[in-house]
Structures are given as C-alpha cells and as structure tokens.
C-alpha cells in the first residue's frame, strides 16, 4: 500500500519483508517496502576487452551509439527489449549487471547481418552479439540447451572410445540434462521391442554395455583429437 506506483519500478529493486525493523523502529505492515537505489556506481573498464577477445567482438570499441543496428534489427522489430545498440554501450562501459538483465534474449540474434551492413563505424554488431553469447556460455551464465548436452555426451564418447554406443549416449544425455532415465517413450519402445524379440541384437547391445568395446588401435587418437578440438575452440574465441 505504501507505494502506489510499483509498476514504475523494476521488480528486482523492490524489497518487501513481513517484518522490518529500521533503526530500531518496527516498520512492519504498511511500511514494509523498501526500494534499492537505481544509481550506477562504477564501471568495469576491462569488460570491453574481454568481449573483444571473442571472435566477432573485436570492433565493439568503435561504437558511437547512433542506433543504426537496433533500427535495422530483425529481432528488435519483434521485441523492443532486443537492443544491440544498448548492449554495446553496456559492454563498452562494463555495466555488466545491466547486461545480465537481458542475458536470456541476447542469443536470439538471427545473424541476418542487417546491422553489420548498415553500421557506419564497422562495429559488426552481429559479431558482438555472437561474442557476447559465447562469453555468457563460457561463464555458465546461460543454461545449456538440450542439444549442447547431447553434443557434449556424443563428443565425450567419440574421444574416449573412438565410437559411440547408442544406449550409453542416451543414458549420458539424460543424466547431463537432468532427465529421468525411465521415460514413457522408452517404456513403450521396450514393450514393442519385446513383442518382436530380436534376441541376437539385444544380446549384442547388452554385451556392448557391459564390455564397452574400443575402436581398434585407438591408442592416443583420443588425446590428439581432444587437443585439436581445444585448439579449434580457442582459435574461434580468440581470433
């Protein structure tokens, strides 16, 4: 009741407590709401350099905030919160907390590159979006997608064994993505499989799970492969 214009305030700045004591005075009840200040109190100067170290982010420091990118943006036409011009400004000054508020939509960039084509300073905003998304991912600031979990399990098995094992991939994928191992469709799959009873195939799958065969003379190939993937990833991120 104390604040009638709550809609004007960012929800995350409104503090409400059933019981609140300020300076020894019990202000519970009508006065139990506090608002944290909106003031920005510092810059993180080196944040710009971090984004610049990712492929695509190199030119972010050139931006002069004309807004051509946002103006031409395919996504902005769908969602006014998708504002590359604004994010670039936040990156330049290192206003990370502000940027975090939009972390769940930055990845929505569709790479149409209209911004890159129109930018008078050659900032390459599409690249900045990509670099920012990679930075968010690297720092665990965005949840991994199901396909990322799948990729990781798949890659892990390739590198470890030189081959994948269907059942293992599925189990690993379910574990990584926090899904139950027993799912309705698997039960159904099992039932139908039992009807036809391809015993030989089942036995082979069972043996493979138990003994986990490796590709012949796999040797150090896995290590080399892992090294290569790491180098490629670094090259992609750091130009």
């Amino acid at each position: 009741m104390a604040i009638h214009e709550k809609t004007l305030i960012d929800p995350d700045r409104i503090l409400q407590h059933d019981h609140l004591v300020v300076d020894g005075v019990d202000v519970s009840g009508s006065w139990n709401t506090m608002i944290t200040p909106r003031t920005l109190t510092d810059y993180e100067e080196h944040f710009e350099e971090i984004i610049q170290s990712y492929s695509g982010g190199e030119n972010v420091h050139r931006c002069w905030q004309c807004g051509s990118c946002t103006n031409s943006c395919t996504m902005y036409a769908q969602n006014v919160d998708f504002n590359p011009r604004y994010w670039i400004y936040l990156i330049r000054l290192g206003l990370k907390a502000e940027l975090m508020k939009d972390k769940d939509i930055i990845w929505q960039c569709v790479s149409c590159n209209k911004c890159t084509n129109i930018c008078p300073k050659d900032v390459r905003p599409e690249g900045v979006m990509k670099a920012t998304a990679h930075w968010l991912e690297d720092n665990g600031l965005t949840p991994k997608t199901l396909s990322t979990h799948f990729d990781e399990e798949f890659t892990h098995q390739c590198i470890e064994f030189g081959r994948i094992e269907d059942t293992e991939v599925m189990v690993g994928f379910f574990k990584r993505s926090g899904q139950p191992l027993v799912q309705a469709w698997i039960v159904e799959f099992g039932k139908r499989l039992t009807k036809r009873l391809p015993l030989g195939q089942l036995a082979k799958m069972g043996m493979n799970v138990v003994f986990r065969p490796k590709t012949k003379s796999w040797g150090k190939t896995g290590e080399v492969l892992a090294e290569y993937v790491k180098a490629q990833k670094e090259a992609a991120h750091h130009g």
């Binding site: 200040p37 909106r38 920005l40 109190t41 510092d42 936040l90 502000e98």
Partner: peptide, 12 residues
C-alpha cells in the same frame, strides 16, 4: 544521468 542507460550515475 547516463541518458543512454536512463539511469543516475555516481562514478569515482
């Protein structure tokens, strides 16, 4: 006021 962020600033 940082007019592009629409926020008050107090910067050292």
């Amino acid at each position: 006021e940082d007019t592009l962020v629409k926020r008050p600033i107090v910067i050292p």
